[in-house]
Design a protein around this nucleic acid. Structure first.
Lengths: 266, 266
DNA sequence: GCCCTAGTAG
DNA sequence: CTACTAGGGC
């Protein structure tokens, strides 16, 4: 028996909007510690990891570990039927091949339940090793989204270069090239607006903007995003899910074999 | 000679937006008592009845009964040329085969008139008998529209079940099923937000969501909708047209022959 | 032509 | 946060 009650149901709606474009089908794994998901995107290039800790739910009952395969598009459609202030409860009986989402309006005058068939999905649960990163950038998530969107109008890849002074996002296209430099800046009114760089070593890596722009679908979840970079390691783009956990996106850097063709540094 | 002056011209615009998707061509019937329309939808499944009473017009002159056949799409297009605050006057001369719509801006600085050819339309004016209904539900029209839209993402039909406690809308599709329960609730801030059930007998009927979703195009006309249900009778979905009359949509229930295939009750 | 989505305004 | 509007895609 599984029963998870989340008063701030809009969080779950946002989580699904954040990953449904990247991943079609995935297993949600439920254990006593929390509700999580790990999946490769459909082209097997990026990886998304979601964790919602048990403590973040108003009620969390999970008698035994269970893996529920869902089509994230259908799940997102269903969640769109919930009001933004609704309380969402996820229920599954032991041995059942369905999951039920219950939506309660704040006044309790409207109660909806949506039952969805579960799917069998081959999951390849990768252990993601903890790593030390050469540079970790924390910045306003909306700023990061705008930069990725802007640069994608010029080129296909972005070079992210971090130094003590700041972080530079560069791209180059056929007819134009662009660089956006953000200075480290911690003297802001709201901590959310800060751009903070923790760095042991300067680093410069290249990524496909297409995936970055998928990751930024998670922007509504958090005012800040954390970008962790190391040579030879996938970048981690992380959005906190209020008090509950996170969504992390992993993407391997491009290896620049042919400088003339692919090096966006201007 | 026919001359009808309607200060709140936006009402007529909304009325046409509400029915133009359902009915292509129809006769507007004008008598000393009012301006009305009755027509089957193009697939001959649903019926729409409109009444705008003479008293609702600021000027109402109709020397003799007249039936004016119009293409509702063209009429809606024409009305879209009127400003939302415009005064609309409908004029037709005796024996003429045209109708004229005149739009006056509130300041009288802009006066437009659009003349449209009338059509000959076979009308089959059905007498709609007054009936006693087993259950009448009054609820916020936006809520009804959202429920019909949400359920249509899952299935094709909705079962509406009314008991003293509330009204339940249910559907079932290939991969999911859903129930939305609204509790009777009269203790709300605005009377429009109430859900009120008058019932002599519990009733449960099945309808095609496609038509329900056409009916909800009338939502902008009124904050509330009234749904009248009886076994064996078409449901009536009624939207009041402010102080003037109503739009009523009629739809026959589906007979559930094959329970396994069509019964959406979970 | 219709649906869905994104953006804006209240 | 909801509703409405405008724009783009199917």
């Amino acid at each position: 028996m599984l029963e998870l009650r989340l008063v701030q149901g809009s969080l779950l709606k946002k989580v699904l909007d954040a990953i449904k474009d990247l991943v079609n089908d995935a297993n949600f794994d439920c254990s006593s510690s929390g509700f999580s998901l790990q999946a490769m995107d459909s082209s097997h290039v990026a990886l998304v990891a979601l964790l919602l800790r048990a403590e973040g739910f108003e009620l969390y009952r999970c008698d035994r570990n269970i893996s529920m395969g869902m089509n994230l598009g259908n799940m997102a459609k269903m969640l769109r039927c919930a009001g933004n202030d609704d309380i969402i409860t996820i229920k599954a009986d032991d041995g059942s091949d369905t999951v039920t989402f219950m939506f309660e309006s704040p006044t309790q005058d409207k109660i909806s339940d949506f039952e969805m068939k579960l799917m069998d999905i081959d999951s390849e649960h990768l252990g993601i090793p903890d790593a030390e990163y050469q540079a970790i950038v924390r910045m306003p998530s909306a700023e990061f989204a705008k930069i990725c969107k802007d640069l994608a109008t010029i080129g296909d890849t972005v070079v992210i270069s971090v130094t003590k002074e700041g972080v530079k996002f560069s791209t180059r296209g056929d007819t134009a090239s662009a660089n956006v430099v953000l200075r480290q800046n911690t003297t802001v009114d709201k901590p959310e607006d800060a751009t903070v760089i923790e760095m042991t070593e300067p680093v410069s890596l290249t990524f496909a903007l297409r995936y970055m722009n998928s990751f930024t679908k998670a922007t509504p979840l958090s005012g800040t995003v954390t970008i962790s970079l190391s040579s030879e390691l996938p970048v981690v783009v992380e959005y906190k899910v209020a008090e509950m956990g996170y969504i992390r996106f992993y993407l391997a850097p491009k290896i620049e074999e042919d400088e003339d063709e692919t090096k966006p540094e201007v």
